[in-house]
């Protein structure tokens, strides 16, 4: 299971919407955080989120048994650790 957390703030809305629209990602709430879970890699396309630079690079709040393997201007990829 790949799992990451994203804080619920207006700037992260696009990020969470893109994740929720992806059939392989399950999105639920833990406290004020969104929890994104998937059996395989979680990949988010930056342009689809509309996130600006600073927002994009600070979107991930936590990693559960997972690791960021790509985070650049194109995409974020999180894999099972």
């Amino acid at each position: 299971m790949t799992r990451l957390y994203v804080l619920e703030v207006p700037e992260n809305e696009g990020f969470v919407e893109v994740a929720a629209a992806d059939p392989v990602i399950t999105v639920d709430k833990v406290g004020p955080y969104f929890r994104l879970s998937a059996d395989d890699d979680i990949v988010i396309d930056r342009r689809a989120t509309g996130a600006r630079h600073a927002v994009w690079y600070s979107a991930v709040a936590g990693l559960e048994n997972s690791v960021i393997t790509q985070q650049d201007k194109n995409a974020l990829r999180v894999q099972r650790r």
Binding site: G31, L63, I68
Partner: peptide, 15 residues
């Protein structure tokens, strides 16, 4: 990486 891992634990603990 270590910070985000530890944060995930605390997020769950305090939710």
């Amino acid at each position: 990486d270590k910070l985000l891992e530890r944060k995930a634990q605390l997020i769950v603990e305090r939710a």
